[in-house]
Amino acid sequence: MGATARPDGGGSAASVTRDAALAQLDRPYGAVFWVAIAAVIATLVRIAYFTPIEASQGPAQKIFYIHVPAAVTALYLAFALMAVASVLYLWLRDPKLDRVAATSAEVGLAFTTVVLVTGPLWAKPVWGTWWSGDARLTSTLFLWLIILGYLILRQAVEDRAQRARYSAVLAILAGLLIPFIHLSVYLFRTLHPQPIVLKPSAPSLPPEMLATLLMSFASFALLFVALLRARYRLATIADGGLADGTASERDG
């Protein structure tokens, strides 16, 4: 984060820093982003053309290579990072941690949206229904709604420190909630068994399929890092209004 200008006081300095901020806005992505995009495209090509069609589910099974890595990225990278950053924020009160939490929430929301869109697309031909009361499905939906609520909350609070504290509290409580949603829906299902209990219990994948899956995991993780980085830079600019946001925050 190259600080090209600092506010030394006076109107001209402010406009210089504004220019620096705008210059960063023009190129928030960087090389990692383009490498990630190339990796995701390569993965999609491999999924479509170089991975065998599964015998019982047909082409629909290929959604699995997108659905599962997106879910794993959202849950174990984005939301884990969000929870850890939120806990650390309440402890250390570093605005950077708040931005990491907010940024992971937003990028995680994007990945969760991919999960929620690809899930029904796969379920319709394979399960015969778009939606079911499945435990994992329901907890993902509510996780998605909580993250939306988190982002709405952030929009609704102007004071930066207050916004950071509120967000951290919500994120931590949400972390405690998810097991309960999962548990209640799981109990619900075992008490009232559904006619379709077709579970994609992970069979040992043939090597070509496993390679595609691993490639997909890697490219999604890379895309996550790239998006997180880009979005974090924008958040820094938006919070500080400067290229080097933290300096002004400490002063203010």
Partner: peptide
Amino acid sequence: AMAVNTRLAELLLPVLALPFFVPVVTAAAQ
């Protein structure tokens, strides 16, 4: 306590609280 101090005030409470009521209401109803 949080919602009253935001710009959305009482509009925000259901958005924040309802997901947390899900396990409570599910268990109570069942």
